[in-house]
Design a protein around this nucleic acid. Structure first.
Length: 508
RNA sequence: CGGGGUGUAGCUUAGCUUGGUAGAGCGCGUGGUUUGGGACCACGAGGUCGCAGGUUCAAAUCCUGUCACCCCGACCA
C-alpha cells in the first residue's frame, strides 16, 4: 500500500456512490448476500449475530412491559385476510399466495403442482388477521384483557425492488399484537411501544430518531393512527426504523374480537400492533459505517473484543497464543451493561494484516494485538473501531482487562454522539418554499450528490400538498411530531395557517 | 407492468463490430521466501461463454426464440 494514498477497504467510498458502498460493505463484512431466490437474502453468521443481539435486547424490553411471546401460522386463509377492506387494499399487491398443495411428475418428468387448494393461503405479510382469529376466541370478557403478545417471525412482501436488509421479499421481524378494554389504554400502549423502540434504537443501536405520527397517506392500511421513528443515515435519507399502530376497533370488528364490558354489554376490543425488522441491521450499517466497513455499536456486536495474536517467529507462537487465551478469559469475566463481554481469539493461520482488515470490515469495536514484544512489556496494542484505522494505544494487560467495559461504553457513546451530531447538522428549519426546493434538489441531476437531509417546515395538513411535493422532489412527510413542539406558523407551500412543523425527507 | 441495459471460472471482467483451439486480475490450493501485518515468487485447480433452436466446414462471436438478472419509474418495514 502506498503511504500517500489513503486506500480504503471499501470502494467506492460513501461520497462516491452510497448505494454501491452499502452493498459492498455488507458483502465485505459477511453480513448477508443475495440468494438464488429472487428478492431473498442469505443472512450470514455475522449479520445474524447482530440480529440475535437486537432480538435478545428488544425481547427483554417487551417482557419488562408485560408482553409475552407466542407463535401463529405462516399461512393466512384468504377469507380471513379479506375481512379488513383497507388492509386488503394496502397489502394485496404484495401478497404471495399458495394455491396448490402437492407436486407430481408429468410425462416429461417435470414436477408440477398437482392439487388445487379449496381456499388459497396468503403467506403472511403481517399477522393482524390470523392473530385476530385467535384473539376472537380468547377474549370473552373485560377480565381477559389486556392481551399483550409478541411474535418473532418471518413475513413475506412481494416487493418490486429489493435491497439487502432494507427491503427483501422475506424478512425477519417482531410483531406485537395487543387488545385493550378502552381506547385510552390502547392509545397508551401504542405510545408506550413507540417509546420502547425509540429507547432501544438510542441505547442499543446508538441512533437518534425523530418520532411522531404518520400522515394519513403514510398510515398502515387499516390503522387509525400510525406512529413511527425515523432515523437519518449517512446519505441523509430517512429510514423508518419502527412503527406502532393504533388500530381502533377496525380489526376487532373484522375478526370478531368482542367482549362483555363492565356494564355487561358486548363491545369490540381496541387493538394495537407494532413492529421492527431486520431492516435495523441495514440502518446500523448506513448510520455508523465508514469507508473501511461496518462500525458496530458494542451493544449489538456479536464479538466485542477480538484478540489478534502476532506470531512472527514460530518459537514464540505457543507463548503468544497462551497469553491471548489468558487475556480472553480475563476479559470475559468482566461485564459490560450486565452481560459478559464477548471475546474471540482469532487463531486462524492467516497473514496478520489480512486478519486485522477482516475485523475492521466487520466492525468489531475493539481489536487487541499481542506479540512477543508486548509479552515482554506485559502490555497489548489496542485499536478502537470508532477511531482511525491506524490508531493504536499500548495498554498494560491488567489495565485493559479492568478498563474494557468503560472503553466499550465510550465507543457506544461516541457513536451515538457522532450520529446525533450528523443528524442535527443536516436537519434544517425551513421557512420558504424556495429554500425547501433548493434543499432537496441536487446540484448535479445526472449523478446526484449526497444532499438535503431533514427539513422542519410548516404544513397545512393537506394531502394534495403532500402529493405535489412527493411528485416534484420525492420527499415525504416522515413524521408529525407528537411532543409539545407546537408552534404557530404558515404552511410554506400554501400560506395557510399551520399549528406545527413536520419532518420532511427522502426516505428508503 | 412501462423505458433502458446485461448474461463468459467463486468475484470483476477482455474477446463479439470483422466467426477460426476461451484470456486476464482478484480469490482458491500446493511449495517456498517473507511477515508487528491486507507481502512476494513459482506451480496448479477451476469455464459445455444463461438456455433452446438455426445459419456455417467452423459460433462466446451472426440470426430467431426463451429465461434470468441489473438500472430508472409506480409500491414498500
Amino acid at each position: 500500500m502506498n503511504a500517500t494514498t489513503a486506500k480504503t477497504a471499501i470502494s467506492p467510498r460513501r461520497d462516491q456512490d452510497f448505494p454501491e458502498w452499502y452493498q459492498q460493505v455488507i458483502r465485505a463484512a459477511e453480513l448477508a448476500e443475495p440468494s438464488e431466490v429472487r428478492g431473498c437474502m442469505v443472512i450470514r453468521p455475522w449479520g445474524y449475530g447482530i440480529w440475535e443481539n437486537m432480538q435478545r435486547q428488544l425481547d427483554a424490553m417487551f417482557r419488562a412491559t408485560g408482553h409475552r411471546n407466542a407463535y401463529f401460522p405462516l399461512f393466512i386463509p384468504l377469507s380471513y385476510f379479506a375481512k379488513e377492506a383497507e388492509h386488503v387494499e394496502g397489502f394485496a399487491k404484495e401478497c404471495a399466495v399458495v394455491t396448490h398443495s402437492r407436486l407430481e411428475a408429468d410425462a416429461n418428468g417435470k414436477l408440477r403442482p398437482a392439487s388445487v387448494l379449496t381456499e388459497p393461503l396468503v403467506v403472511r405479510p403481517t399477522s393482524e388477521t390470523i392473530i385476530g382469529a385467535s384473539y376472537a376466541k380468547w377474549v370473552q370478557s373485560y377480565r381477559d384483557l389486556p392481551v399483550l403478545i409478541n411474535q418473532w417471525a418471518n413475513v413475506v412482501r412481494w416487493e418490486m425492488r429489493p435491497r439487502l436488509f432494507l427491503r427483501t421479499t422475506e424478512f425477519l421481524w417482531q410483531e406485537g399484537h395487543t387488545v385493550h378494554e378502552t381506547e385510552a389504554e390502547a392509545r397508551a400502549e401504542t405510545k408506550q411501544m413507540l417509546e420502547v423502540y425509540e429507547r432501544f434504537v438510542r441505547d442499543h443501536l446508538a441512533v437518534s430518531v425523530f418520532s411522531g405520527e404518520k400522515s394519513e397517506s403514510e398510515r398502515f392500511p387499516g390503522a387509525v393512527q400510525t406512529l413511527s421513528i425515523e432515523a437519518m443515515v449517512q446519505d441523509r435519507r430517512a429510514i423508518q426504523a419502527g412503527t406502532s399502530h393504533f388500530l381502533g376497533q377496525n380489526f376487532a370488528r373484522a375478526s370478531g374480537i368482542q367482549f362483555q364490558n363492565r356494564e355487561g354489554k358486548q363491545e369490540y376490543g381496541w387493538t394495537t400492533s407494532w413492529g421492527m425488522s431486520t431492516r435495523l441491521v441495514g440502518t446500523v450499517v448506513m448510520a455508523h459505517g465508514d469507508d473501511d466497513g461496518v462500525v458496530l455499536p458494542p451493544r449489538i456486536a456479536p464479538t466485542q473484543v477480538v484478540i489478534l495474536p502476532i506470531t512472527p517467529k514460530e518459537e514464540a507462537r505457543a507463548k503468544v497464543l497462551e497469553a491471548c487465551d489468558k487475556l480472553a478469559r480475563q476479559i470475559r469475566e468482566m461485564r459490560y451493561v450486565d452481560l459478559p463481554i464477548e471475546v474471540e481469539v482469532d487463531r486462524r493461520e492467516l497473514g496478520g494484516g489480512v486478519k486485522n482488515w477482516e475485523w475492521i470490515k466487520k466492525g468489531v469495536p475493539l481489536r487487541v494485538e499481542i506479540g512477543p514484544r508486548d509479552l515482554e512489556k506485559n502490555s497489548v496494542e489496542v485499536s478502537r473501531r470508532d477511531q482511525g484505522i491506524k490508531a493504536k494505544e499500548s495498554v498494560p494487560m491488567e489495565e485493559l482487562v479492568r478498563r474494557a467495559p468503560e472503553i466499550l461504553m465510550s465507543i457506544q457513546n461516541n457513536l451515538y454522539e457522532r450520529a446525533t451530531k450528523f443528524r442535527d447538522e443536516h436537519t434544517r428549519v425551513i421557512d420558504s418554499k424556495k429554500e425547501f426546493y433548493d434543499f432537496f434538489t441536487p446540484a448535479n441531476s445526472e449523478k446526484p450528490e449526497i444532499h438535503g437531509g431533514f427539513a422542519l417546515a410548516h404544513w397545512n395538513g393537506s394531502r394534495e400538498v403532500e402529493e405535489q411535493i412527493k411528485n416534484d422532489l420525492k420527499v415525504t412527510i416522515r413524521v408529525i411530531p407528537l411532543d409539545d413542539s407546537a408552534e404557530h406558523g404558515e404552511c410554506i407551500f400554501t400560506g395557510k395557517p399551520s399549528s406545527r412543523r413536520v419532518v420532511w425527507a427522502k426516505a428508503y
